[in-house]
Amino acid sequence: MIELRGLTRHFHVGDQTVHALRAVSLAVPDGDYLALMGPSGSGKSTLLHILGCLDRPTSGSYVLDGHEVGSLPEGELAEIRSRKIGFVFQFFHLVPRLTAAGNVELPMILAGIRPGERRARAAKALAAVGLTDRASHRPDQLSGGQRQRVAIARATVMGPSILLADEPTGNLDRASGREIIELIERMNRDGLTVVVVTHDPEIGGRARRILKLVDGRIASDGGPS
């Protein structure tokens, strides 16, 4: 359960202050499927980063599963990212020198999980995205869609409650994009809260709920039209 109240985020660029988010209040229940839409610079990515505990609000509160997390120190935010949040990025962000399995094992290595368990869980996560036969391939030996599926396996292998996807189909052809979004929707049906940032109305339209941001404010919040 995500609850934001009066959330703001300012950036200082030179001597100017950029208001990326102005008094955003929002509740996302567990298992929700939310699309964040809006023009460039509307604050979508900033909101996603704050939701993912990569960034902290300037003011306002962010309560995640009943705990205020907006002002936690970096070390504790890392812990939350490790246990509760999975990220999927537009440009995949796979480590090129590691195999698909190696990439999926990364969050578990950081969390200090034993090698035996790591391998088993990585294999399971790769199977869930249909890449069992690509486990020992390096990213440059995989197609774009396959890379993004590795990234999804990596994002979900720690069993997070929230999946945050920043333009997950933005770098893929239409067919692969559809496969990826269907994969994410399947995981949502299994109970994962999903927040997708997208420009693509077709992708956004598939969500249960669409949040439109304009100039750092929520312009509209509702089901697909």
């Binding site: 990569l54 890392a78 812990e79 246990r83 990220f87 962000h93 969050p107 950081l110 969390a111």
Partner: peptide
């Protein structure tokens, strides 16, 4: 690495 939960 930070997004995946790495501490500083």
């Amino acid at each position: 690495l930070k997004a995946l939960g790495a501490t500083p």
